[in-house]
Simulated assay, not measured.
Amino acid sequence: MTFGTVLLLGVAAFLVGYAKTAIGGLASISIAIFAIVMPTRESTAAILLLLIVGDVVAVWHYRHDADLSLLRRLIPAVLPGLVLGALFLAVVDDTVLRRSIGALLLVMAALQLALRWRSPDTTAVGESHAAALGTGLGAGFATMTANAAGAVMTLYLVAQGVEKRRFLGTGALFFFGVNLCKVPFSAGLGLFGAQTLSRTAVLAPVVVVGAWAGLHTARRLSQARFDQAVLVATIVSALALVLR
């Protein structure tokens, strides 16, 4: 492994932690980096383990801010979404998967831009059962195939008018549970090889450092500035995957 590859993976691990305690969309850069420097299928398992490390820090810090009523509406559709994502992973090759990840990130970024353009000062909307089920299904599929459900959740929580700490706490608990559910699916697909596990062990401390930095940054910068950075990062990383 070259120095450049090690550096890129270190940056990706840092951003995983940073995104977990600040704004989740920044993890899209990490997803893109892992999918570029590693075989794409194995990259989904490697980054999953790092995401869980970041989840632990985020859940602990925001443990009093999660909205359980929102989570109860989403959970019933997540498992079917995970199953569909696992089936998709089982039948596509690396090139199709990499480009699918990029296309999915672009679609999520476009949806976020559309939502902001239509309603920059979004307030809570009707809590549709269909919207919750659709979000759960989409989040399950997106997270299983690309670890990219953050944008799906962002759309749902923004539409509900969720304020910043409640947003972070609800997302942290949701993704911790979802990512744990993904572990047996990825294991069943044979994605947790010895190299993946050893790489995760080396990068885990970098995730913790990133999470610490995210906690301090989140206190100082506005949600609007975070959101703008997330959209730019998502678009750039998605284009890198699609055009590679």
Rank of each mutant, 00 (worst) to 15 (best):
F167Q: 04
G4S: 15
T5P: 04
F226I: 13
V16M: 04
L157W: 02
L243Y: 06
L115G: 11
K164G: 04
A194Q: 12
A58P: 05
A194F: 05
A201Q: 04
T122D: 10
Y62W: 14
P76Y: 00
L197M: 11
Y62I: 10
L137K: 09
L8W: 04
G177I: 01
G24I: 06
G126Y: 14
L115P: 08
R219P: 07
E163I: 14
P76V: 00
A86C: 05
A132V: 10
G126V: 06
T145D: 09
A149K: 02
V57A: 13
A211G: 03
G81C: 01
F88P: 07
E163W: 13
A35S: 13
L84E: 03
V178T: 08
A132R: 05
P205Q: 04
D65I: 07
T123F: 12
F34W: 10
S198A: 05
S100C: 15
A103Q: 11
A13T: 14
I33T: 12
F88W: 06
A240V: 11
S28N: 13
P39Q: 05
G54V: 00
A233D: 01
L157P: 01
T145L: 08
A46Y: 00
V78F: 02
T154Q: 05
P205F: 03
R244E: 06
I47F: 06
V92W: 09
L191F: 14
L231G: 12
A238W: 00
L104S: 09
A159C: 05
D65Q: 14
D121V: 11
A151R: 02
L8A: 14
N147S: 13
P120V: 01
H61C: 01
L155S: 01
V158D: 07
V208Q: 12
D55M: 03
D227L: 14
